[in-house]
Design a protein around this nucleic acid. Sequence first.
DNA 1: CGGCCGATCCACT
DNA 2: GTGGATCGGCCGA
Length: 192
Amino acid sequence: MKLERSFYLNPDVVAVARSLLGKYLYTNFEGKFCGGMITETEAYRGVTDRASHAYGNRRTPRTEVMYQEGGLAYVYLCYGIHSLFNVVTNGKDSPHAVLVRGMVPEFGLDHMTERLNKKSITAKNTNGPGKLTKALGIHFSHTGLNLRGDRIWIEDRGILIEDDKITTGSRIGVDYAKEDASLPYRFVLQSF
DNA sequence: CGGCCGATCCACT
DNA sequence: GTGGATCGGCCGA
């Protein structure tokens, strides 16, 4: 059920972002098993995408994981507070990634509720990239983890998402990316 | 090595 | 609907 290595090696990161909708993201930290269905993603198309951290083939200790072969987690700190979870895709030295921005919580609800300091949890509590990492216990120190390992992984549970259930649009917070800011690289599964 | 700022969230109004 | 929180990365000097 775990997504195969070949899924992550797809050179078309926009297609990967689209096909991650309806897949299930799981974590298991300290014996706390959690997971849910992915409902929102954004594609970051490597060295030619001004919105990508790897634009212009920029390599830093932080972005180095994006240059590895697809199938790793790229987690970085945003605004000094939020850990944002990305899926590294494509082959080595093709630094593509998909940002996971939303999910519907389904497994380990008690663990996620506790991490969020709430009394209960709904999809509204995991509908942002910083919120879902907090619920799942993903921290920027987890960057580089293999997504076919036993701490963070993604499964296909056979859910088929029709095109008419998806809204496509421009990515969030990428105004600085000039002509790339308006590219339709954001995918949102409706009714969640 | 100093300083600026970001792929955000939430409490408060 | 708005401002404050809060800090690592990275650029420029």
